[in-house]
Write a protein that binds this DNA or RNA. Structure first.
Length: 155
DNA sequence: CCCTGATTCGC
DNA sequence: GCGAATCAGG
C-alpha cells in the first residue's frame, strides 16, 4: 500500500499536462489532482508550461524584494480592510453620532454622504476612516463593492 | 470582496 | 524541486 505521496509522481505530471492542455484553470487542475493551486502553478512554472508568454509575465515584479519598501497600494489597503473586517463581529457602523457637514470634512472623517445632497439634513458620516481610505470600514464595502458579486459558481 | 495567474523565497 | 506566501490584475 502506497501510503506516502512522493509529491509529483510521473502520473500526476502527466495529468497536469493533460488538464493544462485541456484548457482547465489552475484551480481545476489542482482539485482534480488533489494538490494546492500554487503547487500546480509552481510546477507549471518550473516546467516552463505557462500559458502566458515571457513578455506578459514580465509585467510582474521585475525587481527582487530586497527593498521590501512596499508602498501603500490600494490593493494592500484593501487586504488590510479585509483583515479588519474579518475581526469585526458586529454590523458595520453605518450610522454614526458624529455626523459632520461638508465644511467639517477632513482627512480623518469618513466622506460617506448621509441623506441626499441639498437636503436640509444632508451631512457626512464623519467616522474615523481606515488605512488612509476616505471611508470608514463600514462604508468602505458599500462604496467599493457592495456585494456586487453574482459569479456563477461552478461545481 | 472573491478569484486566478505568476513570481518570490524559505525549506 | 517543492509549495506557501505574496503580489498583481480582473
Amino acid at each position: 500500500m502506497i501510503v506516502i505521496e512522493p509529491t509529483w509522481t510521473p502520473e500526476r505530471v502527466d495529468q497536469l499536462k493533460i488538464y493544462f492542455e485541456a484548457g482547465l484553470s489552475c484551480r481545476d487542475i489542482a482539485v482534480n489532482i488533489g494538490v494546492s493551486r500554487n503547487a500546480v502553478i509552481g510546477k507549471l512554472s518550473r516546467l516552463n508550461l505557462m500559458r502566458t508568454t515571457p513578455d506578459e509575465r514580465r509585467a510582474r515584479r521585475k525587481k527582487s524584494s530586497a527593498h521590501a519598501a512596499q508602498r501603500a497600494t490600494a490593493k494592500q489597503q484593501l487586504r488590510l480592510l479585509q483583515a479588519v473586517y474579518e475581526e469585526e463581529p458586529d454590523e458595520a457602523p453605518v450610522v454614526s453620532a458624529n455626523n459632520c457637514s461638508l465644511f467639517e470634512l477632513s482627512e480623518q472623517r469618513c466622506r460617506w454622504p448621509i441623506s441626499t445632497p441639498g437636503a436640509d439634513d444632508f451631512c457626512f458620516c464623519g467616522n474615523p476612516p481606515l488605512g488612509g481610505m476616505p471611508y470608514c470600514s463600514g462604508h468602505y464595502r458599500l462604496a467599493y463593492q457592495a456585494g456586487s458579486r453574482q459569479r456563477a459558481m461552478r461545481g
